[in-house]
Design a protein around this nucleic acid. Structure first.
Lengths: 347, 347
DNA sequence: GATCCGTGTGGGAACGATGTCACAGCGGTG
DNA sequence: CACCGCTGTGACATCGTTCCCACACGGATC
């Protein structure tokens, strides 16, 4: 299981500091600082001498010391709920890409849906003196705490502190309404909703969109068909098995995120139901597997990568102009129609 | 697209420092430091007074200043190739979990397979004075550079600097051999290999495993059947379409990672081939979709989360004992047999 | 009563970088 | 020649924390 190899001692005595560069170039520390940062005077021959000395020594300025002196850092924090969920992974990827472009380093925390992990992470970010934080929040606690320490926050995907902090979200209500209306338009009247929660903005809005579409189709809401499922695939699968085994099962399901959709999909497969013959399925949040299975699954697609990138852009603007009015950016979504929806089976 | 909301000024004058706490508690800075860190003497009543003052002020120690003074940080860096790939996302999730447990914060870079991004990230990590770095390397450059700056490195998933740095990998050769042997055992003789590269340890080992299994089955290697595909799904799909459209197509495909498997799967679907009737498929690296599609896809499963967690553990040990011999840890893999493999079609 | 120990506290020097300030040349101008 | 502005440089304080050192106190030992 474990293979021994030879070791390297690599006992580098000490990392070179600005003082070492100064001595090597025969100038003072101040001059080195000016030559390297480009702020202030430095004769061109001196500058060159300094640059050469720095390169030879492999000098890399100490961010800790610089930040301590300047009292501003070029790091941002990002708190996501669950990196194993492709949604958050792609969000983080988008944030990372934009952060790199803007010269920020990114400190990442996977809070694993634990409130304790979340507040520990928040405190660590304060300690790190980050310039700002992106968060997919589980409560308003993090935003409030960070704001009280003067750290700009952008809430992404869902919002708890709308009004006092910036937010970047998608058109949840419109997306959910469109998806549900699509099912209504096909003739479905018993449309189940699988949703994780309805208290946060995301779940609430998607729930509202669902209700609006039903109401527009003159369909009375059946509370039995609204399933407030848990967080993971297993839970969602179990709930779906229960519901779909019943005698008067729905003719269509709208799953409010990719995890719930996966649970429902697995349950449908286990029960041997045919899609869309027996049951139609639409998901919120397109995932790669939805275009790989057969039949392919219709979904409300959100540009998750862009969601992450946009939130970093927003954060950067906020850092530049701390006093400006807070803004909530809403990214549009679109329904990708695939093969999983059809009119309900004839009675 | 953008909604204006009211703003909050939140003009906090200044972050409280240890000096503020000291004044509030009526003691010296030294005493506050001792009381809060627990290093050195502090009378219990004084300690309590200090803790209360710190809590009241919302004091959070400045990691920058602490690190500058102590010359060791509690941050580790992680460099991954592509966060959008579930493999790297899960790897990062495992690393994050273990890092949190051990009291490290994690600075993440998505290098997007760009050599330039990779070296920029490496320099940023040196500047940040991280305690160590986890990397899924693309060359030996990063490991060499970081090591030359005295920063411990753990190479994960693949290894370029075996012998001089620690590594955590999976049993690539055994896994590939097992998967291929499974196909051979079913009677296949024309078995294609889709692989991204064969120069790095990962690709090389998987290729060797494939060759070994063929050789054990007395099958001559047909170079036409070994496809060195690119990085993304689109490329792999194109190459698969080319190969599977041909007259003497293989009866089985071994795809050496999840991305390539996705491309092959999509191509098979587009060509209307039946799995495993016309063609069998095995993948290296199990992905969620492989158990959701129909038929489900057999795969060599690696515990990717654990791969990330293990690499952080290894890094922590290395940080604790910098001079010990370097170690390569090999995690075992297992073949998950599903529905995508069967004997070849009769002639 | 001098010395020593253990406990507890404060002063002050670092850590590495930045940036203000003073000042030294130098050529030009009144 | 005194003064000015400009270019270029170095000394030094500073950021917030830690930690070494000095020292003070009370009680025990010689």
């Amino acid at each position: 299981m474990t293979v021994e190899r030879r070791s390297t001692p690599l006992s580098r005595s000490r990392r070179p500091t600005i003082k070492d560069v100064a001595e090597a170039a025969g100038v003072s520390r101040s001059t080195v600082s000016r030559a390297l940062t480009g702020r202030g005077y430095a004769a061109s021959d001196v500058r060159e001498r300094v640059l050469r000395a720095a390169a030879e020594l492999g000098y890399v300025p100490d961010v800790m010391a610089r930040t301590l002196k300047q009292q501003v850092s070029r790091s941002v924090g990002i708190l996501v709920s669950d990196l194993r969920n492709p949604f958050y992974a792609e969000l983080a990827a988008g944030a990372s890409s934009e952060a790199r472009e803007r010269g920020y380093t990114m400190v990442l925390f996977d809070t694993s849906l634990s409130a304790q992990a979340e507040s520990e992470a928040a405190e660590a970010l304060v300690a790190l003196r980050v310039a700002g934080v992106i968060v997919t929040p589980n409560s308003s606690a993090v935003s409030t705490y960070l704001s009280s320490h003067g750290i700009p926050v952008v809430e992404v995907d869902r919002q708890f502190a709308a009004g006092s902090t910036d937010g970047v979200v998608v058109g949840n209500r419109v997306g959910a309404r469109t998806a549900t209306a699509h099912l209504v338009g096909l003739g479905h009247r018993r449309i189940a909703l699988f949703i994780d929660e309805t208290d946060w903005t995301t779940g609430y809005e998607r729930y509202q969109g669902y209700l609006e579409a039903l109401s527009a189709g003159d369909i009375k809401v059946d509370p039995e068909l609204v399933v407030s499922s848990g967080w993971d695939v297993a839970d969602s699968r179990r709930r779906a098995l229960d519901m779909l085994r019943g005698p008067d099962r729905p003719t269509a399901v709208f799953a409010a995120n990719n995890v719930l959709a996966e649970g429902v999909w697995r349950a449908i497969g286990e029960l041997g139901l045919s899609v869309p013959g027996d049951i139609s399925l639409v998901a919120f949040d397109d995932s790669p597997w939805m275009s790989m299975v057969s039949p392919t699954v219709s979904a409300v697609s959100q540009d998750t990568f862009n969601l992450g990138a946009t939130s970093v852009r927003r954060l950067d603007e906020r850092i530049e102009r701390p006093e400006s009015d807070s803004v909530t950016t809403v990214l549009n979504v679109r329904l990708v129609q695939r093969e999983s929806t059809a009119p309900p089976p004839a009675l």
